[in-house]
Amino acid sequence: MPGPEVARLVGMTTLATAPAKRQRRTAGLRRAISPLALLALWQIASTTGVLPADKLSPPSDVVTALIDLWQAGALQDAVGISVQRVLIGFALGATAGVGLALVAGLSRTGEEAIDPPMQMLRTLPHFGLLPLFILWFGIDETPKVTLIALGVAFPLYVNTFAGIRGVDPKLIDAGRALGLSWSERIRHVILPGALPSALVGLRLSLGVAWLTLIVAEQINTTAGIGFLVSDAAAFSRTDEVVGGLLVYSLLGLLTDSFVRLIERKALAWRVG
């Protein structure tokens, strides 16, 4: 994974207060105008023939195509399979990433053993491993899920590890002075202190999970959203292609808002 992942950390943590929320709602309405205008422009360009349907279908056709796919049951099947790949890959990668971060973060020996190889492997573009994975695991689910797991593990590892190590040592000392044992200090001081950073890692890793899914599903696949898209492309059905992309982004948006919700609940202490 590229280095700037950590640098983006600061920009991605969002805090909201009540008046700020209200302000954002009106700002949100105004910000919706230009995307809607672009959508209208696209529709007009298509209906007037400026934009031929075999290059890009109008928004109305995209919606119709999605409804047709839904009624045929193909959309549900594809989404089900894709979501399943992401969930399994994410679960594996998150377990590995967070697990390794805990070991490296909570013990010096663990850090010395785990951190150097992790930092080295982190720079490897994981998409580049796809041919190797196909060679190792064949063309079924395994290479896809493994690739997602690999993509997920690194941002979670890096941010959780940084979070653990970033906990104010004065707070840990205060815990010791209060008589907290090692495990109690981990539970009451270190883990909650590492949570904000770990949640940034969670958001980044979910983004990587969907991206990896899209790449992995382009190759040798017979099911899933990626299959739907490549099959549609073979028949120049640009309405279905765009529809598939739309589903991808909606799913990404869904998981991102889920993490935002967790952040709002779990990090309420930052705003009070």
Binding site: L171, H188, W269
Partner: peptide, 14 residues
């Protein structure tokens, strides 16, 4: 024995 430090050192998440 118990301590109060120069900074309050309250756990922000409690």
């Amino acid at each position: 024995a118990s301590v109060a430090f120069q900074e309050p050192r309250l756990l922000p998440w409690r």
